[in-house]
Write a protein that binds this DNA or RNA. Sequence first.
DNA 1: GCTGCGATTGACT
DNA 2: GTCAATCGCAGCT
Length: 209
Amino acid sequence: MSPVGRPTRRALARSVLEVAPALLGAVVHHDTPDGGVAVRLTEVEAYAGQGQDEGSHAHRGPTRRSAVMFGPPGHAYVYFTYGMHWCVNVVVGPTGQASAVLLRAGAVVEGVELARQRRPAARTDRELARGPARLASALGVDGRLDGADLLDPSSPLRLLGPLGGAWPETVRRGPRVGLAAAADRPWRFWLADEPTVSPYRAAVARARG
DNA sequence: GCTGCGATTGACT
DNA sequence: GTCAATCGCAGCT
């Protein structure tokens, strides 16, 4: 059974495979001096904790980058990749387990004008948050928000819920995107018939000697 | 200290 | 369809 209703620390402390699909349809809001942008999540990926998931940043234990993953649920794990992109996760599961949900895509439901300014390359509004780095960019999130408490009413970056708000029959699942390790695990969840879901790209097979 | 590559994107053929 | 951008991490010497 999946958590339902308002996002609480307790609800997010459930197993990552329960929480990840429950985040579909939930809203993430970021307030800045420029204004607010809110995104309704349409696509997420689950990452299990230390020693359980070769594709997770937490797989080999805590590092400075992954430290937030080892803390309590309900905080943002924000990391920098490919030398230019930020991606946002929600830490879930019991404290210390280091599982998280990557926010892969969503629909901008508030602050569309501001999101357009931040994402000039987007040719249509559905591209504003279509992809994990695009979602972070549309929200205006970067490394300064790593560790932010998404459940704290005074936090600029918040998870507003609802949890478990998506109709179960609209939830799809399949392999995760861009992972060479543990690529077979169907831990990507998305909403059917949503134009904001990112196009699937299988992991690039590494050339072997 | 050095090297290879990544939970990606946008531009281009 | 292909590929460069760009830098922090992780693994190795």
